[in-house]
Design a protein around this nucleic acid. Sequence first.
DNA 1: GGGGTTGGTGACCCGCGGGTCACTTATCCG
DNA 2: CGGATAAGTGACCCGCGGGTCACCAACCCC
Lengths: 253, 253
Amino acid sequence: MPRPSDPLARTKLLAAAEAEFVEHGLDGSKVEQIAKRAGMSKGAFYLHFAGKAQLFRELVEGFVARLAALTDASLHRYEAHDACSAEELIDRWVSEDVAVFEFIWQNRGLIRRLLEGGSGARFRYLVDEFLERFSSKSRHVLQQGVLRGIFREDLDFDLAASFIAGAYDRLARDIVRQSTRPDLRPLLEDVQRLVLFGLASAQLRESASPRPSGAEPAPPSGVRAPRPLPDDPVSVLASQLRSPLQGRSRGLR
Amino acid sequence: MPRPSDPLARTKLLAAAEAEFVEHGLDGSKVEQIAKRAGMSKGAFYLHFAGKAQLFRELVEGFVARLAALTDASLHRYEAHDACSAEELIDRWVSEDVAVFEFIWQNRGLIRRLLEGGSGARFRYLVDEFLERFSSKSRHVLQQGVLRGIFREDLDFDLAASFIAGAYDRLARDIVRQSTRPDLRPLLEDVQRLVLFGLASAQLRESASPRPSGAEPAPPSGVRAPRPLPDDPVSVLASQLRSPLQGRSRGLR
DNA sequence: GGGGTTGGTGACCCGCGGGTCACTTATCCG
DNA sequence: CGGATAAGTGACCCGCGGGTCACCAACCCC
């Protein structure tokens, strides 16, 4: 085997691709530019990857796998924290969140591009898979939390899990676009408290009926929402991932 | 002026462009295909628009303006509902939300593409401008609500406004991807209650310290939210849109 | 109807960028 | 050292799609 190939070539290309992807997005990244950035020629690129598509698939799959491992472990620990005061519990949860968002901040460039899903959203399925996994884990945390008296009993688990995933999603989308590093801990603590305790004043909470999220046996009489659109046009690309909005566990009031 | 031009040409092209955009995204939409769909030739396209970019700018700007008008009016009415029971208030708010999300559902294809921001996010600035406006309006609603005792007094307005905008954003992102029409009213009511009252059980809420969101009851001296919005400037091109994560009104933790 | 004017057509131009390949270069082996 | 072999190079190929323009068609006016 004369002329051994550069053993770092693949790695260098992946790193260069990540940088280009962050700067220019998927369609904006040119094979020639990636190769140049990695210190080699376009021709060499094709010695290490079958094409642009394969390179990016590898890049994104690897990253999402790392992120999934991190959040899986974190949510697992979320459940493990127990037998302590409310304040202590919140503090530990916030610590978990800080670790996750630290990672997000470190990789904000890539994550921003992935969340955009730009250029035909070719990696949407990976992001969706991840979110679905996260949502499912969250649902489990919620169920455990209800058993332990942490969360209210009348939660619609699907909706609440989506609500949580949504809060993370939103936070990630914001953080990822910051230009200077936000102070994560106080931010995450505030969000944690907003999610747990809501916006309402005690007064409003007490004067509202005791049906905070979901059911109530369904009013016998009137039909609300009189089927305003029997069914809708279009609805082309399906992507029918199990969303909390479909098949909600509670009926339609 | 012999041979008068088709007076509907521009409209037909815009409609065709919207359809193509929804199906294929920005880069995926071809001028030739748009023209064909509008029932004319590529050449005719260039008689009505200076180019692809102008067409899409017009399309998106028009749509965002319509959406902004709708949400502006809705948030305005949000504030106007007063002097009624908590249940009634929530019911009215939900009705407002239903109207907005009805519109979102009707235009889900376009909105999905806009939220993706795909293809270099060329319209990001418009979406950002809209969100900034929305967030700012929400902040106002929150401030009014606190004065009226609806929301807790210790809210960090910037964070809470972002929290609200985030909840809508998340919901929109979900709804826009549904394949069948979700039953909006019960869904939005549940979300409303989640946002207002949070996830926590009464037990957890009571055992937690009385600092739910942000800081202590505000030292009497301090100015809260240093000029949250006496009146907000136009905030033209949104690059540096005022994010709740930067310059938070309360200090750290 | 015929000439003048403007709307409309589609073959063509051309830059861009993914992918190829004949050729060059580095390295190993004898 | 020299030949064999595989890594690496970059000029080139080619399809794609935005944009153009010589030409044709519809319409108004006289």
